[in-house]
Amino acid sequence: MNFLIINFFLISILLLTTFYIFKTTSLISIVALTGIFTLVCAAIYVNLDAVDVAFTEAAVGSGISTILMVMAVAKLPEGKKNQLLNLFPSIVLSVSIVIVLMLIIANLPLLGDPNAPIHLHVTPEYIKESKSIFHIPNVVTNILASYRGFDTLGETIVIFTAGLGVIVLLTSNTLNRKTKFKKKVKK
């Protein structure tokens, strides 16, 4: 029961932070709020027993991501006043998505239900067998590195490609257009 109440408060903080991200115009404040957002997410993951996910979120999501955003925002001008375009179509789209998703989540199993279909298949074998096969007590590590090792290999390829793309984009000067508003860039 305690777990549910803590979960309720953390999720509410998450929703509040999202609202302020939507409202704020200053870019550096948005970056700081994003850091808060990811740290609250890490707390939620700990509360929901996902300690490995919380560790990664705190290190990668909250640390590296925030540093990258601060580095980018330092080179950019201050954000303009909030101008919301496409307001009507996006409200229609959002409301319709909310209705459809609410209909779907009404049929989902409740939070923490041990008889939900997700808990009945592959996972019991993973929990029962992995210790005797790989001799590592952490089941998440076993699945990540052994049962689903190819997934992780694909992930490293994705990160490598993204890093390559970032380097190419940041170092290339061939994309520069010779236009009159190039002068406005602050040195």
Binding site: G61, T123, V139
Partner: peptide
């Protein structure tokens, strides 16, 4: 124990999201 399989999927997704 809580289900470890979604944890693994989300571990991958977090890193890809940062990329």
């Amino acid at each position: 124990y809580s289900n470890p399989l979604p944890h693994v999927l989300i571990l991958t997704a977090i890193v890809v999201g940062v990329a």
